[in-house]
């Protein structure tokens, strides 16, 4: 039953995840955190962090991670299979159509509708992680005294560096791990 749920959840992620990269993140959050509660938001954020640091697509990384966490190796295989099955069918069908009719106006329209949607969804998922990072598990509040200032500083600095110098995201994350990590350890000592 668990395997079936895993398969079906990641099948939907594979089926609806247009756009590559972070675009699939909100779908994974929906299935894995909001709907099934397989991971907490904290664990999910760790997973995104790990995924950004390792090679491989986020969807496959997540399928393996979540599958292993809740169903061992079998879970990982089932979730990964669910995730790539829609791709196999759709990609090969489209390749066949593409060979027949090379005018793909409708496909372009579909993508034109999805691109802004994907931006909105990534922003939503990013906001929920940012709120966790700045306010902790209590969630957003207008009481800005409860903001984690170290996290805010790391976030703003990281964003400025990325925008200004086009640095590799991996470097920014390594930097924030080192600086943030050292900062939190020192704060706990005081």
């Amino acid at each position: 039953m668990l395997y079936l749920q895993l398969f079906w959840s990641f099948f939907q992620i594979g089926l609806l995840g247009f756009g590559g990269g972070l675009a699939v993140m909100p779908l994974i959050q929906y299935q894995v955190v909001d709907k099934h509660g397989w991971l907490s938001l904290q664990q999910f954020t760790d997973l995104i962090t790990i995924s950004e640091m390792t090679p491989g697509p986020i969807a496959i990384n997540s399928a393996t991670f979540v599958g292993t966490q809740i169903g061992g190796l079998g879970g990982a295989l089932v979730a990964t299979l669910g995730c790539i099955l829609p791709s196999c069918v759709i990609v090969l069908t489209l390749a066949w159509l593409y060979g027949k009719y090379s005018d793909m106006a409708v496909i372009k329209g579909v993508l034109g509708g999805l691109r802004p949607t994907v931006v909105a969804l990534i922003l939503s998922a990013g906001l929920s992680i940012l709120i966790l990072s700045l306010f902790g598990h209590e969630g957003f509040s207008w009481n800005f005294a409860s903001v984690d200032l170290l996290a805010a500083a790391v976030f703003v600095t990281g964003l400025v560096i990325l925008r200004k110098y086009r640095t590799s995201p991996i470097l920014v994350m390594l930097g924030s791990g080192v600086i943030g990590g050292a900062g939190y350890l020192l704060l706990e000592r005081v």
């Binding site: 954020t45 760790d46 990534i122 990013g126 790391v154 976030f155 990281g158 791990g177 943030g180 990590g181």
Partner: peptide
Amino acid sequence: VVVSAVLKGMMAGVCAVIFDVVITMGSKI
């Protein structure tokens, strides 16, 4: 303790990466 402190720092970093992507894609639109 060390791992969770590093991951906590990285969480803020991953937010920066996500918002960078959103700004790039959003401003194009």
